[in-house]
Write a protein that binds this DNA or RNA. Structure first.
Lengths: 130, 130
DNA sequence: GCTGCTGGTATCCATGAGGTAACTAAGTTC
DNA sequence: GAACTTAGTTACCTCATGGATACCAGCAGC
């Protein structure tokens, strides 16, 4: 795979990849997308799965993903209400690069944490030496 | 590729993927990594390439990447000084998933922007109807 | 000794993402 | 008619990110 060629527009502030990188960096968005990979799920189940996210923040996250066309929101006319969230085709297509990134993370984050410790130790020694 | 199975730890707040997702979401970090794909580069060149990032923010970004062991910082004893930044092996290995994500973005961001427009129009109409 | 170059720091500030806590609507059951 | 359910909303607060601006150190050349 050729990873060395850089399209000019990556440096453009309006570059499309910025849109996605920002969405990935969102604290809950990529998590929600991965949970939705297993099929539609309702609001309350999502809340339970995604640890202790508050309803406000979860709603915000879901609205953003819906606006971007990555998920759909389906309200069932029931009482008590039932709202299902589901990946769109577009959202599902994001799973592949997202999963690859997650796999890379699982492989390499230990190295990163080790590098951090080493860096911080070196910093501490430098300060001591002053 | 199997994207449906979800490792339990993705829901863990200490999950390794969070570390990476956060770094990707950093406004400049993933950009710098991609620029460094073409080989070592010095501070001032980086500043020119990455549009108009201020030196403070660029330094912050580079220090973070260095701390994570993704890049190295090499000071040459010259006058005027010369400092080169270069990807480590670890940093280079991140290029592959990052590039796949960028390619996905280039393919699909138009759809996302279209979805946003449609969503916003629908919202406007809903407000008008009130 | 003044200026210029590089690679930064130092200081202050605005914005927005994310969090807390309390409240709501609408129908159903008891 | 009080309580419970789901799927939120509202108001408020905090803190990290990122940006603007100014300054600095060291040496070369004039």
């Amino acid at each position: 795979m050729d990873t060395s060629s850089l399209p000019a527009n990556v440096l453009d502030p309006d570059c499309p990849s910025r849109v996605i990188f920002q969405r990935i960096g969102d604290k809950w968005a990529s998590l929600v997308v991965q949970v939705l990979a297993d099929g539609p799920i309702r609001f309350s189940e999502l809340r339970k799965m995604v640890h202790v996210v508050t309803p406000k923040v979860l709603t915000q996250t879901l609205r953003t993903l819906e606006r971007d066309g990555l998920i759909t929101r389906t309200v069932h006319a029931q009482v008590p209400p039932r709202v299902d969230y589901e990946l769109t085709e577009l959202g599902a297509s994001l799973l592949e690069p997202l999963t690859l990134l997650r796999l890379w993370a699982e492989d390499h984050v230990p190295s990163i944490l080790k590098a951090r410790d080493a860096y911080d130790d070196a910093q501490d020694e430098a300060v001591m030496g002053d």
